[in-house]
Amino acid sequence: MCDVPVPVPGPLEVLIRVRACTVCNRSDLAYYHYYGLRDHCAQGCFGHEVAGVVEAVGPGVTRVAPGQRVFVRTPSTSGYADFALAREVAVGSLPDEVPFEQGAILQLLPLAVHATRGVRLGDRVVVIGQGPVGLMALRMAALRGAAHLTAVDLDAWRLERSMRLGADTTRHVDGTTEQLLGAGSDFDVAVDAVGTPTTLNACVSLVRQNGLVVMLGTHHVDTHVTVDLVTWERKGLRVHSSAEPLDTARAEALAVAERLVRTRELCLPDLLTHTYALDELPKAMEHLSASRVLYPDAERAPYDGPPRHTLKVAILP
C-alpha cells in the first residue's frame, strides 16, 4: 500500500471515489501473476471493475455530475485505490437500490451485451465457461430471446447458478475436448467464455454450418492459438470478439447496460460471493489464484477447476 496524488480529471474525464472494485477472474489474475512474463500484462488496468460516486468532472463532461452513483466499463487508473479516473464514455449511472459491491460487477455487462449482439430470437446457444462473464453472457443470451441455452463448466456448483440465470441444460465436464464436444452439436451460437485453445476450438466444432463463434474469454495465458482454417472455411463460420473497438460501440453497449440495470433482470446477488477490505487484496488474489485457468492449456496444473464456491470477489476501500 502506498500514497499517490489524487488524479485530476482532464477534458471528458471523470474522477470517481471508489466504493467497490471487484476482481476480474481472468485479466486481474493474469496481470498479477504474469507481469513481466507477458508484455500485455503490463499494459492493462489492474483493478478495472469499479463502482463509486463521482467526485469531480473535467471540462466537457455532461452525462454525469459530482455526487452521482456510477459504475465503470473500464477506468484509466486502478480501482484498487480511494479514487479512480475514467473517461466519460466508460461511465454508467448506478441506481440507488444496487449496492456498490454488486454495481462493480456491471463492468461485465456492456461486455456481455456486445458479445451477444449476434444472438437472434430462437437461437440455440452454448456458453463454455460459467464464471462471472460466462454467466453474464448466458443471461444476455436469454434476454435476447435464445430458444435453448446450454451451459458448460468444470464446476457443478457454478452450473447450479447457470440454471438460475436461464440455462435450459447444463454439462459438467473435465475440460477435455471429448467431454466438451459431448455438449451437443448444431448450435447456432457458441460462446467461449474461458479463453483457451481447447475451449475456442470446441466452439468451432459445436456450431452448425454458418454458425457464430464468439470469443468472450480473453487469451491472457495462451496468447497464440492454433485453429484449423480448413474447418472454419468448410463450415462457413462467422466469428466476433467481445471487445468494443470504437467509442461508438462502447457507448451503445453502455447505454443498453444502463437500461438493463433498471429492469432488475441481471441477478447480481447470485454473482457476488466474497468481499475483502482493500488492505486484504493480496489475500483475495491468493483465494482466486487456486484456479486452472492461470496455467497454459497444455500444462499439467495443480487445480482441476476454479476456486470452490467462488464467483465475484469485491474489494472495499
Rank of each mutant, 00 (worst) to 15 (best):
C2R: 11
P5E: 11
E13N: 09
A20F: 13
Y32R: 09
Y32G: 02
H40G: 01
A42Y: 00
G44E: 00
H48E: 01
A56V: 02
G60L: 10
T62I: 00
T62R: 14
V70L: 02
S78K: 02
A81T: 06
F83T: 05
G92D: 02
L108P: 00
L109G: 04
L111C: 09
V113K: 05
R117H: 11
V119R: 02
R120Q: 14
D123M: 02
G131V: 04
R139Y: 06
M140L: 15
A141K: 07
V152H: 07
R161K: 15
L165Y: 08
G166A: 12
H172L: 15
H172Q: 13
D174P: 08
T177A: 09
Q179C: 00
F187A: 08
D188W: 08
D188V: 01
L200T: 10
V204M: 12
R208T: 15
R208V: 07
V230S: 13
S241Q: 12
P245Q: 09
D247L: 08
A255K: 13
E258G: 07
T263V: 01
L266P: 08
D270M: 03
D270A: 13
L271K: 11
H274V: 01
Y276A: 09
K283Q: 15
S291Y: 07
V293A: 11
L294M: 11
P296C: 11
A298D: 12
T310H: 08
L316I: 15
